[in-house]
Nucleic acid binder design. Structure first.
Lengths: 191, 191
DNA sequence: TTTACAAAACTAATAAAATTAGTTATTATA
DNA sequence: TATAATAACTAATTTTATTAGTTTTGTAAA
């Protein structure tokens, strides 16, 4: 290897710092090279280009989000696990707004590796939902519901979609509680 | 006026066509000028620049979405109104993926006009929820919940977040039903 | 009908960004 | 110590947004 201690991981972490502080749309090869103290073309020794960089950020972000959620659900089950995991999700988005945005590439990108990483989150949720003893189809609906709900809340908050009138954390708890209670009730009905 | 029948509205509609077919990230002044049959600098007679164009698309998109929702709730009340309106929302996103993406500018843009347009949707939801006789704070929570849920679902679907295993429309109905039932139950409890 | 003004098109030029090609320097290892 | 690979560099190209300044054209007043 030559010169500086720059590798794929260093580049990725520098990019994360930029998007979390300056905003996802302000990521550029020029800015990234500058923070690393190298010239722009040198970046091409580590990433294939801008779209490759964005793809790698997506995979990296999804995996870090998944780890955060997994961590938050350790030792908990059922409703408690869901709450802890949902709260961890929202916190992640607040701490890493740019990285979270990176996890949501436009449909036109549609990459195999990104889709695969996303399945990790779905599987995690399915396991946490096992306590509810749902039938397979209902479990899938519930996973989709939970993802929609948590992503929707975090995403709207990120885009400043809520005014300041009322504590947003209370709203989130209210939302999650209402939905999870409904799931629970549906599960009991099926017994 | 001179030459062609191009005005702000024509430009906006051409831009909508581009983002809905080619994707939001493929909007450029160059592409837009080409579809209008003019040279790039001529666009500056109608919009102030790229970021102004994006801002105008955001406001335009939010207002069209609001009209779609308002239309869908005419003559209905309570749960029926919510269902019709939610379904209309999801359909809108499917028909106008690019325009919908335009309605969600990064937090750093934070424009007064955009925020104001967004309030229109909040007010519409508040009126539709009047049938549930919620207290003011609970009504706000419910509006936030509904927006999170519907936006989250539409947004994940748009980003190909769901696999094909199960009918997504059934999942959406399931989600909305579970949540609205919960709201209704909460409302009755408070009486 | 002619003239004058304003709006909207144009050309030319600049700046910033991504990317490619080709070259030089450095470091690990044979 | 020599060499091969890696990663930095410079130079050049392309694309895009944007600005300045000019020309054209349609409307409305004289």
């Amino acid at each position: 290897m030559a010169r500086k201690g720059i590798d794929r991981q260093t580049v990725l972490e520098a990019a994360v710092k930029i998007i979390d502080t300056e905003g996802f749309e302000n990521l550029s090869m020029a800015a990234l090279a500058k923070t690393l103290g190298i010239k722009t073309p040198s970046l091409y020794n580590h990433v294939k280009g801008m779209s490759d960089l964005r793809k790698q950020l997506a995979v990296y972000g999804i995996n870090r989000l998944k780890e955060t959620m997994a961590e938050a659900s350790i030792g908990l089950s059922g409703k408690n696990a869901i709450f802890s995991l949902g709260t961890a999700y929202v916190s992640f988005v607040r701490e890493h707004p740019g990285l979270y945005e990176a996890t949501l590439p436009s449909a036109s990108v549609l990459d195999e590796e990104i889709l695969h990483a996303g399945e990790g989150i779905v599987n995690l949720l399915l396991r946490v939902l096992q306590d509810f003893h749902l039938e397979h189809e209902d479990a899938i609906h519930a996973v989709r519901g939970l993802r929609s709900l948590v992503h929707g809340f975090a995403s709207l908050e990120l885009k400043n979609g809520f005014n300041m009138e009322l504590d947003v954390d209370v709203s989130f708890k209210h939302l999650l509680e209402t939905y999870v209670n409904g799931i629970e009730r549906g599960s009991k009905k099926n017994k």
